[in-house]
Amino acid sequence: MKAKTNIEDLFKTAKENNTYLKVCAPMVRYSKVQFRTLVKSYGVDLCFTPMILADSFCQNSKARVSEFSTTTKDSPLIVQFAANNVNDFVDATQLLYPYADGVDLNCGCPQRWAMKDGYGSALLSKPELICDLVKGIRSNLPNSFSVSVKIRILKDLKRTIDMCRQMEKCGVTFLTVHGRTPTQKSGEEINADALAEVCKSVEVPIIANGGVKTLEDADRIYERVNCAGVMAASGLLTNPALFSGINITPLDCVRQWMALRDRYADRISFQVYHHHLVFMLEKIMAKQQKPIFNLLKTIDSIDEFLYNHILDKRDSGNINLSCDEFVECVFDDAIVSRHVGKCRGCSKSLYYCICSDKYDASNTDGSYFTSHVKKTACDLDYMDSVGNMFGEY
């Protein structure tokens, strides 16, 4: 078990110092351990993993390998899950408990696939289920382990506040509130007044989220809404040094990312390495350079481009990242075995199936269970089930 950080103490320390936590948002595909390592070197206090589907994580070895990795110093760390039932949420959390400092429930994703399956923003209409999910963590894991919920504000502010108060009573450590409704676009203005009302209506710390592109934006939100933390997403992708007060990605940051690639060559895909650089260099590259860089296909061609157009080979810069060792995660077989397949009748893992009392497996040839399990867990293609998504939820 790697070293732990008490998230509640993290908030207390920031408050005592009259400041706020700088937070890296959960971003699908992008807020993985290498990027978390990078942004922490530029002033980020707390990182989230990308959103992970709790049921797929429990069922699928590919999901566990592709969606979660960590290092010995990857703390403080919150794992964010999309879940729509207590069993999946609790089991997924127990699998990752040794490797994280807390778990977060996604109640903000507005994408259609998530809403259709009862994830993300769909949960905002079911506050009683959200509370059951939070209570499930509180009943099964130590109180020192953080449990939080990320929501969006509703058009009815009173309903938003009532829901936050309910979650507070259920035992959340903190809440993250995105300042837009589920139907608003990412470019629209956040409702800072609504965020301020939420912050003054509950006792637990609130992390404000939405529209943060610079440190000045973060400071402005903190002062206006009196929150305990400020979360950035796309702003950090474009400029991982955002919270250090630098408004354009510094070249040392690019060098740090290249050093991380070299250190973790077998742990970072070409796609992730390239895409992050596309974001980082957005305000650095000339307009005519961007389409050329975007079409590069190899690591070597990327490095050649960077040294020909962006970086000076003679200047090694200031590479001060601590290259931590990866933790080899071992997941509890007893928990994993509960999720070997799903029932088509109730969509739950067969271990928790509410239909099972209608069937006696000992008196059949097993055809019922064979027909109701889509595939074995290892046969599932996790990313096919998620789709080609990008976003911050």
Rank of each mutant, 00 (worst) to 15 (best):
L236C: 05
K155G: 14
C164T: 09
V230K: 03
E216Q: 13
F174W: 10
V134R: 08
I130Y: 06
A208H: 05
V202G: 08
T160H: 11
P182V: 10
D217N: 13
K169S: 14
I161G: 03
E128N: 14
R224C: 13
K169Y: 09
L141M: 14
P127M: 00
T214V: 05
E197H: 12
L195E: 06
R224N: 13
I153P: 00
K185L: 14
S201P: 11
S234M: 06
E203C: 08
C164R: 12
K135A: 10
I207L: 09
I207D: 01
E168T: 13
V202C: 08
M167S: 02
A196I: 01
V198R: 08
D162Q: 15
D132Y: 04
P182K: 11
L236A: 03
V172W: 04
V134G: 02
D193Y: 13
A208E: 06
N143E: 15
E203V: 10
N191D: 15
T176V: 09
N140R: 05
L157N: 11
F145I: 02
E128Q: 14
N191T: 00
I161F: 05
N191V: 00
S125R: 12
I153Q: 08
K169P: 01
G235T: 07
C227G: 04
M167K: 02
K169A: 14
G210E: 11
G211N: 08
E188Q: 14
P127Y: 00
N143I: 02
T160D: 03
I206A: 04
R138N: 09
D132V: 00
V204Q: 03
T214D: 03
L157T: 14
K135H: 03
L195N: 06
L236Q: 05
C227D: 04
S125I: 10
S201N: 07
Y222F: 15
S148N: 05
N143G: 13
L141A: 05
P182I: 06
A192T: 13
R152W: 09
E128P: 02
G179H: 08
E203R: 06
L236Y: 06
I206Q: 10
K155D: 12
I151T: 13
N143F: 12
T181V: 01
E216Y: 10
D162H: 11
V177K: 12
D162N: 15
E189M: 10
K185A: 12
L133G: 03
K213L: 13
V147Y: 05
G136L: 11
P182Q: 07
G235C: 10
E223N: 13
V172G: 04
P142Y: 00
G179K: 06
A233E: 05
I137Y: 05
I130A: 08
G210C: 10
P182F: 09
L236M: 13
V134N: 02
I130V: 14
G187Y: 14
R152I: 03
C131Q: 14
V204R: 07
E168H: 11
S201R: 07
T214L: 01
S148G: 03
L195Y: 09
E197D: 11
A232W: 04
Q166E: 09
D162M: 11
A192P: 00
C199F: 09
K185V: 00
K135E: 15
N191I: 00
I161S: 02
V202L: 05
R159D: 07
N209K: 12
K185D: 01
E168W: 10
Y222G: 04
V177P: 12
G235S: 11
C199E: 09
I206S: 09
G235N: 08
V202R: 02
H178I: 00
K126I: 05
